[in-house]
Design a protein around this nucleic acid. Structure first.
Lengths: 188, 188
DNA sequence: TTTAGTTTGTACCCAACAGTATAGAAGAGC
DNA sequence: GCTCTTCTATACTGTTGGGTACAAACTAAA
């Protein structure tokens, strides 16, 4: 039986704290309180302190998307790939009840600490989605533009749903965006 | 000649600090340093401290949009109204170089402090834009859906532009969104 | 020029902050 | 059971956080 913590199962718990409070709004004491992991363990796993914790969290999120969204987008059959993405997005963001950590970090001064990871995450997403659309028969420019609009639309929907305190806004937006990735949408 | 400060000309300077650093990331010392206003003056104008400062900043932003975007949207001739909105949005957000304070506040725990103002800002914007589209001949449901997509698209574009460190993303997105508010777009 | 009201600088408060040191507990391999 | 490594709790440090107190400086109106 495993009673002690491992770094890998602490990361997602810390992620949730950063997601709710933001990088600057998250204090060590909050992390300790909400995760139940003591300060000793925390600094054992992350000698670099808060910044290293946030870095690990970002890397974890990035890896999750790489595995469940970006890779499928470039490997699977294009129809299936895009369907997988929409499923993943809907469940990951809990139908709008959860925000995008990477997007949140992009907005304030925190961006400068993690500029590369943040930019990489979005670039990769857009690139992978563009590829899937091209394989579906879209011309390259239209695919790139649409991919950008989809990714940006998801971020906007998360903001708006949270701002209005209404998850339905997110669901509605996902449906409208989803329609635009249908096989037929590139000829209109 | 005026050498002393007035509350009204201090607010926009504080706004810029909150915009760059976020609510939690902004410390009193940062405000003092970046605005050049001393702690004495600050607490004289805002006895409620940091929270009152942020409240004043939000009210100021809201008032600006009310005057330059929302009112025009519901008063002016619909074509003109929408054109005014796009001009205002482009210049206000400095072509993507500046983020939306209200959107940023919506993402973390800060939302809970200012939930009403934040929700009100977006509700009002969507409502005013919906009205203008209806006056342009759109049917009500389509107008509401499009207004939501436009507002959310602007927020998403701000996130993405900042995440990628590329203002061109914002300009591109604004052009694509703008096309959708053209008089002809509601019949496709 | 006095006076009343507004604005400002400075010194101070305590709580919370990130981070350190270290001793001890728990688990794995032998 | 012994030992080496990994993990954890606790007490402690210096710094910065938001906020207060108040006296001095400034301005406008009489």
């Amino acid at each position: 039986m495993r009673t002690l913590n491992e770094r890998s199962d602490v990361v997602p718990r810390i992620a949730e704290v950063f997601r709710e409070l933001g990088y600057e709004g998250t204090s060590l004491s909050q992390i300790i309180e909400r995760t139940g992991v003591g300060k000793g363990s925390l600094y054992h796993f992350f000698p670099g302190g808060k910044e290293e914790m946030a870095g690990a969290v970002l890397a974890d999120v990035d890896a999750w998307f790489e595995r469940h969204v970006f890779q499928p987008l470039q490997d699977e059959d294009s129809d299936r790939a895009i369907a997988t993405m929409w499923d993943a997005v809907n469940s990951y963001f809990c139908s709008g009840g959860r925000i995008c950590l990477v997007g949140a970090f992009a907005l304030d001064e925190t961006r400068n600490r993690f500029a590369d990871v943040i930019a990489g995450y979005f670039r990769r997403w857009i690139q992978a989605l563009t590829g899937a659309l091209v394989r579906q028969g879209w011309d390259k420019a239209a695919a790139a533009a649409t991919a950008e609009e989809i990714v940006l639309g998801i971020q906007g929907a998360l903001i708006l749903a949270r701002a209005l305190g209404d998850q339905a806004v997110f669901s509605r937006s996902m449906q409208r965006l989803q329609v635009r990735t249908r096989r037929s949408s590139h000829r209109r």
